[in-house]
């Protein structure tokens, strides 16, 4: 479904991503794990077109994404929940959801909003509130709900557990699995390697801009290197 081949991304003179290749197949949960600064978010930004690779190619549903501007990628069926949620803090919950459906015809929006409210009842209670007044967990739900408004085939989540309490993290991961069961393919970027590996079909480990390990979620969760580096022994 998503095929990333040999991408190299630079921030000025800093070589942030060094020849990364990976694939996400239809119906999978794939996770990219790695320490802070390993380049996980940079990869997602490159896939969704906010950053550009100097080499290689990215194709989605057999279509090359080279030269397609970021705002045209959403309508191809890919949604990206960025790190730090980045909901529109001065807009209401409902307006945030409307923005998520920006590329879809107006007539379909209210049905999708109802779907999101069914999945996240908290958002319905707060629909007229300004997003800046929501708690961290609610903002994460809003960010996910907003991404779902585009009816994505591939959902990319960047650090959805960041800054949340263990109960909320569990809730968010339950929702990720529900979405997966409902047929959404998921690319998950996480620092919380244990949680990510427990739900992932396959995983890639990223270190200073390179993929150093890959395998099934279960394999990596058992791997000694991973245990030492990320799972605390």
């Amino acid at each position: 479904m998503l095929k990333v081949e040999d991408i190299n991304v630079y921030y000025g003179s800093i070589h942030a991503i060094k020849g990364v290749s990976f694939e996400v197949h239809q119906g999978e949960i794939v996770t990219l794990i790695g320490a802070n600064g390993a380049g996980k978010s940079t990869i997602l930004h490159t896939v969704s077109g906010l950053l550009h690779s100097k080499t290689g190619s990215i194709s989605f549903l057999d279509q090359d994404l080279a030269g397609i501007p970021a705002h045209k990628i959403v309508s191809k069926g890919m949604a990206h929940v960025p790190e730090g949620r980045r909901v529109f803090l001065q807009m209401t919950v409902e307006e945030n959801l409307e923005m998520g459906a920006f590329t879809r015809p107006g007539g379909e929006v209210s049905a999708s909003i109802a779907d999101v409210y069914e999945r996240f009842p908290r958002l319905k209670e707060r629909r007229k509130q300004i997003a800046g007044t929501l708690s961290g967990g609610e903002q994460q739900m809003l960010a996910m709900g907003r991404a779902l408004m585009s009816k994505p085939k591939l959902l990319m989540l960047d650090e959805p557990s960041m800054g949340l309490s263990p109960i909320l993290v569990q809730q968010i991961f339950d929702i990720i699995q529900e979405l997966h069961k409902a047929g959404t393919t998921i690319l998950l970027v996480e620092q919380n390697a244990q949680m990510a590996l427990s739900v992932a079909d396959r995983a890639y480990v990223l270190e200073s801009g390179k993929i150093v390990l890959s395998g099934t979620g279960a394999e990596l969760a058992e791997s000694d290197e991973i245990k030492k580096a990320y799972l605390g022994g």
Binding site: L50, A70, K72, V74, P82, R86, V87, M99, T103, S150
Partner: peptide, 8 residues
């Protein structure tokens, strides 16, 4: 950036 991710 987030606006672009919405397709704006």
């Amino acid at each position: 950036g987030a606006a672009q991710l919405m397709g704006i």
